[in-house]
Design a protein around this nucleic acid. Structure first.
Length: 564
RNA sequence: UGGGGCGUCGUCAAGCGGUAAAGACACAGGAUUUUGAUUCCUGCAUUCGGAGGUUCGAAUCCUCCCGCCCCAGCCA
């Protein structure tokens, strides 16, 4: 069920079920056009449709709305299928294509013509536009509007047989050229398209329009509740027109809800494809993309996406969901499930002066404090280590309580150490190494004398470390709503130039050597990371940062930097 | 300025005529902590786009106004 209560769509479904209208439970459908990759906005719809079917003992179909050859392809069909399953929903045998219904749809069209409810129109696309009227002026009727049915039938047949070039004729529903709803001003329902269709090949050269194919496909499949986004509300009267003129009860019912918008990203296929085409990202599955494929590669668990969709709710209000909410559910699920490891991303060499040169020892580390069943592992310790550059400051500000000259700090699961001196590059003055001593009595990190150690930092033994590349991802856009003021023109203006930072070499604890692609970890004190699905090899492991840990120190230091 | 849809905390979002307007995220404090993480407390809309009205009683009903979104593809 839903986090926030029962949304208005579920309520409608419940009422319809209670009224006995649909005896076999609700049948919903997720109807993507295979012309792009699925994104998190689609995930909202997938969760809604499959969720309702599951909750009320119904069914959910996956139907490809493939009525426009030329911009659709089998590659997209494959990616969509994969993404839906990865998200955790299995349509099983219920995978359909609008193109499966082309014969039925054709028959429906013929029936409309015979009944005087459709006609073949010879107006050019330009003429159709000109005669459609405007928002405030009615349209004018086509000279072909009263063409005898026999004549339309013959022309439609010829259209089907490929006897006309594209654009020469179109089949139109005869409704009302004066309707205040432009959708009803004799909309085109079939057009000539001489393109190779990814499934029907060259069998057809006329293709039904969405407004015609969609409601009828719903009816053919016995859909009870046809859920779509708000921008289709204008099309609903047309949806009802086709369904009531051509099909019997019980008829499918269209219900609209608000599409998902999320801060600091864009969620329209058009804009996402532009990012890909213009090379702003490395592909549809770039980990910065809000696509399912991108999020998968980023390391976001499908469970988190489902939880997110559950939390944002379903309503009719246009909204902009804070991406922080997504980040929150990602952290929440990963905190529970991801094993902890130590990794140093920006290495600073540390030498333990009183630790023997050739010695090393194994220390025990907890895999997941949130899950005792995850057990423990051993981590090697030796004289030369790497620690994070950020964990040392030569002249620390007041609130910094990590390592600094003369200060003590605990190395996680290892020893309490003290900074004795700093080695710098003579030429640049840059700190190249810090020299410390350790307290042998503190093995494991406990102080037998009970002295309080304010900070614990992570580390990796230099001689045992696995070298790796780590990719740090940040939001793709600097503006909360990149599409807002710029119509479409240049949402790319607000692209974040620093959305990707590749770090190398990074040093990982040796247990990470055999991590499998897709495997997710928490690098302690840094964030959640996963092995890249594409570029990682055992020779050159690559990790992607999914999301950082919450970092109150970052807030404190940023605040004091501003204040000072 | 035709038609359709929508306006409840910074962001989502419950609420559907009956006492003090859920919850989550964000934010701000505090406690515990070998991750400045997690966890745990605490605070955070005298008010529901505005104005009138109906009612003993309204965010919930009525009227008017204001604002935002969608529609003039042979796209979906």
């Amino acid at each position: 069920m839903n986090e926030t209560g029962t949304d208005f769509i579920r309520k409608t479904v419940e009422e319809d079920l209670a009224s006995g209208k649909y005896s076999d439970g609700p049948v919903t459908r997720f109807p993507p056009e295979p012309n792009g990759y699925l994104h998190i906005g689609h995930a909202k719809s997938i969760c809604l449709n499959f969720g309702i079917a599951a909750e009320y003992g119904g069914k959910c179909n996956l139907r490809f709305d493939d009525t426009n050859p030329g911009r659709e392809s089998a590659e997209y069909v494959r990616s969509i299928l994969r993404d839906v399953k990865w998200l955790g929903f299995d349509p099983g045998e219920r995978v359909y294509f609008a193109s499966d219904y082309f014969d039925d749809l054709y028959r429906f069209a013929v029936r409309l013509i015979k009944e005087g409810k459709a006609y073949v129109c010879g107006l050019s696309p330009d003429q159709i536009r000109e005669t459609r009227g405007t928002l405030t002026r009615p349209g004018v009727e086509s000279p072909d509007r009263n063409r005898p049915a026999e004549e339309s039938l013959a022309l439609f047949e010829k259209m089907k047989n490929g006897e006309f070039e594209e654009g020469r004729y179109v089949l139109r529903a005869k409704i009302d050229m004066a309707s205040p709803n432009l959708c009803l001003r004799d909309p085109a329902i079939y057009r000539i398209r001489k393109a190779m269709h990814h499934r029907t090949g060259e069998k057809w050269c006329i293709f039904p329009m969405y407004d015609f194919a969609h409601p009828l496909s719903d009816a053919i499949e016995g859909i009870t509740h046809s859920l779509c986004t708000l921008e289709f509300a204008n099309n609903r009267p047309l949806y009802d027109w086709f369904v009531s003129n051509l099909t019997d009860e019980p008829r499918p019912k269209q219900i609209e809800f608000a599409r998902l918008n999320m801060s600091y990203t864009v969620l329209s296929k058009r804009k996402l494809s532009r990012l890909v085409e213009e090379g702003r990202v490395e592909g549809w599955d770039d980990p910065r993309m809000p696509t399912i494929a991108g999020m998968r590669r980023r390391g976001i668990p499908p469970e988190a996406i489902r939880k997110f969709c559950d939390m944002i709710g379903i309503a009719k209000k246009d909204s902009l969901v804070d991406v922080a909410l997504l980040e929150h559910v990602i952290r929440e699920t990963l905190n529970r499930t991801a094993q902890r490891r130590m990794a140093v991303l920006r290495p600073l060499k540390m030498v333990i002066e009183n630790y023997p040169e050739n010695r090393s020892e194994e220390l025990t580390a907890i895999n997941n404090p949130e899950d005792p069943s995850a057990g423990t592992r051993n981590v090697p310790f030796s004289r030369v280590l790497y620690i994070e550059k950020d964990d040392f400051m030569e002249n620390p500000p007041k609130k910094f309580f990590r390592l600094a000259p003369g200060r003590e700090v605990r190395l996680r699961y290892a020893y309490i150490i003290k900074c004795q001196s700093v080695v710098k590059d003579d030429a640049t003055g840059e700190i190249t190494e810090i020299r410390c001593t350790y307290d042998p009595a503190t093995r494991g990190g406990n102080a037998p004398d009970g002295r309080k150690i304010k900070a614990t930092i992570h580390w990796v033994s230099a001689s045992h470390a696995v070298r790796s590349e780590v990719r740090l991802y940040d939001r793709l856009f600097l503006k909360e709503n990149p599409g807002a003021e710029t119509q479409d023109g240049d949402f790319t203006d607000s692209i974040n130039p620093n959305s990707l930072e590749k770090l190398s070499p990074c040093y990982l604890e040796p247990s990470l050597r055999h991590a499998a692609p897709g495997e997710r970890f928490q690098f302690e004190r840094l964030g959640y990371f996963c092995v890249d699905l594409k570029d990682s090899t055992s020779q050159n492991p690559v990790f992607n940062r999914t999301v950082t840990l919450r970092d109150s120190w970052a807030k404190i230091s940023a605040r004091s930097r501003r204040g000072a």
